[in-house]
Design a binder for these strands. Sequence first.
RNA 1: UGGGGUGUAGCCAAGCGGUAAGGCAACGGGUUUUGAUCCCGUCAUGCGAAGGUUCGAUUCCUUCCACCCCAGCCA
Length: 551
Amino acid sequence: MSNEQKPLNFLEQIIKKDLADGKYTKLVTRFPPEPNGYLHIGHAKSICLNFGLAETFGGDCHLRFDDTNPAKEEQVYVDAIKQDVIWLGYQWAGEVRYASSYFDTLYEWAHYLVKNHQAYVCDLSPEQAREYRGTLTEPGKNSPYRDRSVEENLDLLARMKRGEFAEGSRVLRAKIDMASGNINLRDPILYRIRNQAHHQTGEDWCIYPTYDFAHGQGDSIEGVSHSICSLEFADHRPLYDWFIENLPVPHKPQQYEFGRLNLNYTITSKRKLKQLVDEEYVEAWDDPRMPTLAGYRRRGYTAAAIRKFCEMIGVTRSDGMVDVAMLEHAIRDDLDKNAPRAMCVINPIKLVLLNYPADKTEVFTAPSHPNRDDFAPRSVPFGREIYIDAADFREEANKKYKRLVIGKRVRLRHAYVIEAQEALKNAAGEIVEVRARIIENTVGKDPEDGVKPKGVIHWVAAHDCLDVTLKLYERLFNHPEPDTGERHFLDFINPESLVVKRGCKAEKSLASAQPLQGFQFEREGYFCLDNRGESTVFNRTIGLRDSSPKI
RNA sequence: UGGGGUGUAGCCAAGCGGUAAGGCAACGGGUUUUGAUCCCGUCAUGCGAAGGUUCGAUUCCUUCCACCCCAGCCA
């Protein structure tokens, strides 16, 4: 099993063959985000695919911003995207590329098509254009401007570029086939007028190329061999090829499509994620509940776990719905192996050890990981008064309850076995203090009288601990497919996606935690120190698996 | 009803004419000073359906069915 090869996915098979056949001498891929939002888990799949392919086949992967629409894009997104790619552990070949840096060439190529009678300036309004386009089942009609002379088209195009016309008044279209069953071939738009500044090119342009007119040509200019995009662009491939065939491009790239990631209980629509941010359903793009890479990072997910997840889900042409439990498995698996352990009491109640001297304290040495001796042990203070979790004590319980019960014993993790004696309550009947006794000589060994403890609970010394705030996160949506169906996705927001717990008691060693460093709070889950504000806030990355029986 | 895709277990996914890998989840059991981890076991006579070709079909052919994408001057 361990020496079995992981089967190649369909793209790896194609690339392996292309390289073997000499169709391409070097693999070049690209990750082409539009800087109109933050990268999310779906992008991670594409990043891992494109950069991963380049890694395994000794090729290059470019980072190219698909920045052809100044109305939606911003420099802040450019910066965030670069940071996320680096965080995932990838490095693009050469400089960061921008589709906008090819605007001059693209404009020349637009001229080329006009001169070849393959493009024309169309004066139809957007509404008229829609009517002329036809429908899914009916062919479109030729634009009345379709047969303008080359001279007139050239003149109009130049004037569009000069900014003489209003937005929406004219476009440059390719002359292909208004009757095509593929709507992308019904004289697609190459350039539209946008009197807007661009984050990269400033005021240089007032006409901007469309995705279709920019993408494949950008691939060609960069020498991309395999241009990998998601399934919904399959319909665009004939157009992609049309430009490559009809333009004097330097190189012929080939487009392939794969099924984008769908994750249940999660939304991966940049528009909707932006809405969550803009309308303040979450704190920001990097809110730990967001499925953005920035959000997962702040939540305590590691890049390794996200890459592992992408490896687990595979790459195919079928569109499925991946269970978020797979992502959760990936991060638990990573953190279990790599996160140091510590103790933190979330709902503290005081426990007094009546037979332990008030003036005595001890410091126990506890391993920071149960099966990694490369982790330095930590010191854990102990004294007469400690905190335990309210959920770990009951006055009475059945045999399934493996925690502290009056008259019964439990092991304090890394310390003594204790036996509960009584519970003190307030006027409301709530337990405010538990009284117990230690069983002598039980650190690191079982009680001499042979009465073993029923279980193990975590604790923190009252005289020497940290007061911390815990942010307990759950899934943002309580419906497996918040994005589909009749109801609006906002209706499915989980009201308990964030529960803030103040006054939690953490062991002293956590004082040296670094921002975003992950820990396992034993018996509770994985947490990381938040990376902003006060230094005493820990975000819960994910809880531990819990196979305890319902009591 | 036009064009483009996809159907293998609850989910993801191998399989490429020779008798259904693996992972996640779930469920049993063992170990355990974390109800964690780890270990062992169970989990498709079946590959969307029906025909056909073949000694043999998840793999080839035919027909049908279901689902997804496309009618932005978004990407």
